[in-house]
Design a protein around this nucleic acid. Structure first.
Lengths: 213, 213
DNA sequence: TAGATTGTTAATCGATTAACAATC
DNA sequence: TAGATTGTTAATCGATTAACAATC
């Protein structure tokens, strides 16, 4: 069994999850792989592959029981856990993340926001106040934080990342364009917004071409 | 020749581009596929495949001339064009995008920011002021805007997207979690931040497991 | 010429899709 | 039983990597 863990965990399971919620809200009790595939714009084969990866929750000739499967997917994507993270860098992007309202629904919560710039100290966002980077290590340790969103400027990204790891961070959600070379037991997930914008402009250009054919 | 246009255009070409800049700043005149692959953490095969897709710019036994290749990649990724976009939704994420400093370098520029909330009208960001959604259609038409970043709340995303397309937008950079069903000649690029965070937490969890083995 | 490195074809790897036996 | 739909194996598709002839 092959499984593209990346789009599977990060993208397909959450989509199944939320569509199943919609169906449950309508009072539905079951769903077939075919129906679900239509909702998420996929193939029924894909859906069955994905769901069978989690276990044998379906019934042949019937479909999948919604409540059970919903719970199982929830467990798989970690809805029931509580991932606590901090935001390092309280610029616009950092503020956007600190205020991101989708986190709660999927078991994430931002516990602290940090910056070097003393003018930002005390600035309030989403029930927190921006703290000085001097507090960083203490906070990570005291609150046992595992994950940090890195939204500082590129020039200081490497140094800050090293500090984070030393302080005990095990996962860095990296919004900078700096390649972080980290120990093997630290996970780095890069978010390159520009990539997707370039992708968009490229695709738009291609479609423009077609119209002349 | 197969080409995964997505990661190719959106991710690998820009990385080659910026590493080649570094090398040129150091006074280097040429680079080999091997050296470049080491810089971008890839294979030399991958690099040669990618570069040969753009044309035959290398010289056997020598390598690739930096200045020439840099220009060619620049053209391919659109550095020399000027893509103008607007941001619709002036919340934290919209503000982050309006202020995003990497755009300029790759030929993008934000020309306007819009919101429904009159309390935000006139708020200044990155040399612009937030405009009322009433101005949307006029602005898109007058400035001939092709691309819009959609950072409104999910509840109104569909309606706003329809308005954008009617007004002439051809590409939507969708930061909402709403599936936009658009005409075939409109490109939608979805940015699901939560996906990558889930991915991160999943990978972190997996590494945690390994340490017990 | 010998060494280096490209450009390109072939081999591999892995994800998605199709097919279908199992079975409700 | 007949119809429906899963679970799973096989076929396909496509991207990456390896290999190597071409050639500077």
């Amino acid at each position: 069994m092959y499984q593209a863990v990346s789009s599977f965990i990060g993208s397909r399971l959450p989509r199944y999850y939320s569509y199943m919620e919609h169906l449950m809200e309508k009072g539905r009790k079951k769903v077939s792989s075919r129906e679900l595939s239509a909702l998420v714009n996929s193939s029924s084969s894909q859906v069955r592959q994905d769901l069978s990866f989690l276990g044998n929750f379906g019934t042949r000739g019937y479909g999948y029981p919604l409540d059970y499967l919903h719970t199982e997917i929830g467990n798989a994507i970690g809805v029931n856990r509580n991932y606590e993270l901090i935001v390092v860098g309280a610029g616009h992007l950092g503020q956007a993340i600190a205020n991101y309202s989708y986190f709660g629904k999927y078991g994430f919560s931002v516990k602290g926001v940090f910056d070097f710039d003393s003018r930002l100290f005390g600035l309030e966002m989403n029930g927190m106040t921006v703290q000085s980077m001097n507090q960083l290590e203490t906070f990570i340790c005291k609150e046992n934080i595992q994950i940090a969103a890195l939204t500082v400027s590129d020039t200081i990204a490497k140094g800050v990342a090293d500090r984070l790891v030393k302080a005990g961070i095990r996962g860095i959600w990296n919004f900078t364009y700096t390649d972080l070379e980290m120990p093997a037991d630290v996970v780095v997930e890069n978010v390159h917004l520009l990539d997707s914008l370039m992708q968009l402009s490229y695709r738009e250009k291609e479609i423009g071409k077609e119209s002349y054919v």
